[in-house]
């Protein structure tokens, strides 16, 4: 099952509302990030929020109590705007799980994306490293796809950015895949990115939810 399940979860065509998200890229560009800095922005996400979320998914998949994972994730996601956007993204996974009759559908309505993803990965029999890779890939690829809308370029260019992150992604996957306890979830933050994302709730001409 996990053979195609990991691919499904990483696929932008998975009907979970992924097209409404930009993984922080639109807030960053509105906040002053130069399009030429998007590759560096991907590195920052990989080192910070994408890693936190991937670890959260891994720990959820490992079967840690969801309330404790939620506390740990929320403590590492101080902006209520960022948390609310993650909850909306999580709803897409819950809805998918409900339609398909998976246990993840029993999670509370305010379950954020990384926990919903980890739970879905558990339902689908994914390995820890697979869910970590899916979480990180989805985060970075979401930013790459949004880049094509926000700062259009040859669509092959972001593919190159992502491939350039391949080794650090593997390292991050190896780092977080072994985690099992909520308190082990990394907490590295990117202050400006967080401030940009927080300001997004009041941005007047945004295309993406977050």
């Amino acid at each position: 099952m996990s053979g195609i399940a990991a691919l499904l979860l990483a696929d932008a065509r998975l009907p979970a509302g992924g097209h409404t998200q930009s993984a922080g890229l639109e807030p960053a560009l509105l906040g002053g990030l130069e399009p030429t800095d998007i590759p560096g922005f991907l590195r920052t996400r990989l080192a910070t929020s994408a890693r936190v979320d991937a670890a959260t998914a891994v720990v959820t998949r490992a079967g840690a109590p969801v309330e404790q994972v939620l506390d740990a994730w929320a403590a590492r996601t101080p902006s209520e705007v960022v948390r609310a956007a993650a909850v909306e993204a999580g709803r897409g996974y819950l809805r998918l799980a409900r339609t398909l009759g998976m246990p993840t559908s029993l999670l509370p309505r305010d379950t954020p994306r990384p926990i919903a993803l980890g739970s879905l990965a558990r339902d689908l029999g994914l390995a820890a490293a697979e869910v970590a890779r899916v979480a990180i890939y989805d985060d970075l690829q979401t930013a790459c796809a949004a880049a094509l809308k926000l700062a259009p370029m040859d669509p092959a260019t972001p593919v190159g950015w992502l491939l350039a992150c391949a080794d650090p992604i593997d390292e991050a996957v190896a780092d977080v895949a072994k985690l099992t306890e909520p308190q082990q979830i990394p907490a590295t933050t990117a202050p400006l990115m967080e401030l940009w994302q927080h300001a997004h709730s009041t941005a007047t001409r945004r295309l993406f939810r977050a």
């Binding site: 990030l33 130069e34 998007i38 560096g40 590195r43 920052t44 996400r45 910070t48 400006l192 990115m193």
Partner: peptide, 11 residues
Amino acid sequence: LPGMLGAHRVI
């Protein structure tokens, strides 16, 4: 790094 402090020196 983009998204960390940028050109800022104070947090």
